[in-house]
Nucleic acid binder design. Structure first.
Lengths: 195, 195
DNA sequence: ACCCGTATACTCGGCACCGAGTATTTGGGA
DNA sequence: TCCCAAATACTCGGTGCCGAGTATACGGGT
């Protein structure tokens, strides 16, 4: 069976190995240093599974199995040519074709009618605050990264996330206002149901 | 162990049962009719697992096990009081607290530097088109729903998604332009690496 | 010389999720 | 009346993901 592009962690592994050979634990460390764990979920269990998977499909090879002292042997992996091809192709797909995702908030807001209007208003306002905080934190981080002399391209995903968060905040503000003054379509019925 | 709020499908089940008792297959049907499968991932395997889970935690009860003809017996479930409490509380949490999610596109765009600039431009433009199509489809759907006399509150999640898609399109347009005329920070180095 | 906290490096069992597969019933056309 | 496609209702084995747990090595303080 051919390789399945499920876990983006596999993509991160390919990307790291496209620079230099590494053993799994080093991959994890590098991801941490570069704040990649912010965009790609990392945990050890998955990492080793994913590496084994890539190995099975010969997208990476075991370049060396060192043994220092009494430690368990570390297998250093390197990317193969098919691996590089896979990396680029997967990357193109990931960007070009929007994946069907299921954000938790969409699920939640789709059922907001089940809560009484005043409860709904409260929680929406809470989220608005939380989003504001995330925006502030992001702004600080961007400032820092730019100050370190890193080019915009190095933190382009944060730029994107910031744009998305701003849009969410705007929407939340609108919805909160519309709920507060009862102008959201269907408000009367909504209020009626909860008394 | 207490109930874990992992699969949003469980939330959908609670929400459906808060209206009337149903058996699993009916739940799936109702979700389809109401286009809920758009926001909450539905598949049979997970549905039955989730129902059993809710049952174990006594958030729902087996109200009746009918048997019509030679068919396998259908177990009709109803929501309990703790179930209703759980539903409301979960809903509040889902709205109030932004969950840490890992959108595929963020992963992809964070590594866009690995592609040559012209390839990157191509795929970003492709995504832009795709997003435009999704927006158009959504607009049609909203028109239809509004025409059917459904209040805005009934499709509020689509309103939200539309806002997000618009923001994404705007960002994509910006990035495409910045790539085209080389004004994205770090462009020179980017181009250099790929020749 | 010894202690212990932190870093290194991985393992493993469990569980949720998935979706193709199965078996029966209904309905409508020839 | 017969047949077959679609609908009904669920099952089950496989897989991937998870994260707490394990075990050794290093290093600085007393």
């Amino acid at each position: 069976m051919s390789f399945k592009r499920t876990n983006p962690l596999a993509l991160a592994v390919l990307a790291l190995l496209s620079e230099q050979p590494l053993h799994p634990y080093e991959m994890a460390q590098t991801m941490r240093e570069r704040h990649q764990e912010e965009v790609i979920k990392l945990n050890y269990g998955s990492l080793y599974t994913v590496v084994e998977q890539l190995h099975r499909h010969e997208l990476i090879t075991a370049a060396a199995t060192q043994k220092a002292g009494n430690r368990p042997e570390r297998t250093v992996y390197a990317i193969t040519d098919t691996g590089t091809a896979e990396l680029h192709d997967w990357l193109r797909e990931l960007i070009a074709i929007p994946a069907k995702e299921y954000p938790r908030f969409e699920a939640g807001i789709s059922m907001v009618g089940l809560l009484p209007p005043d409860d709904a208003l409260t929680v929406v306002e809470q989220r608005c605050t939380a989003v504001d905080e995330q925006l502030a934190a992001l702004a600080v981080l961007l400032e820092k990264l730019a100050g370190m002399g890193l080019p915009q391209l190095a933190w382009i995903e944060l730029d994107y996330r910031m744009a998305m968060l701003r849009a969410e905040r705007a929407w939340l503000t609108w919805f909160a206002n519309a709920t507060r003054d009862g102008t959201v379509g269907g408000y009367d019925h909504w209020e009626d149901r909860h008394r």
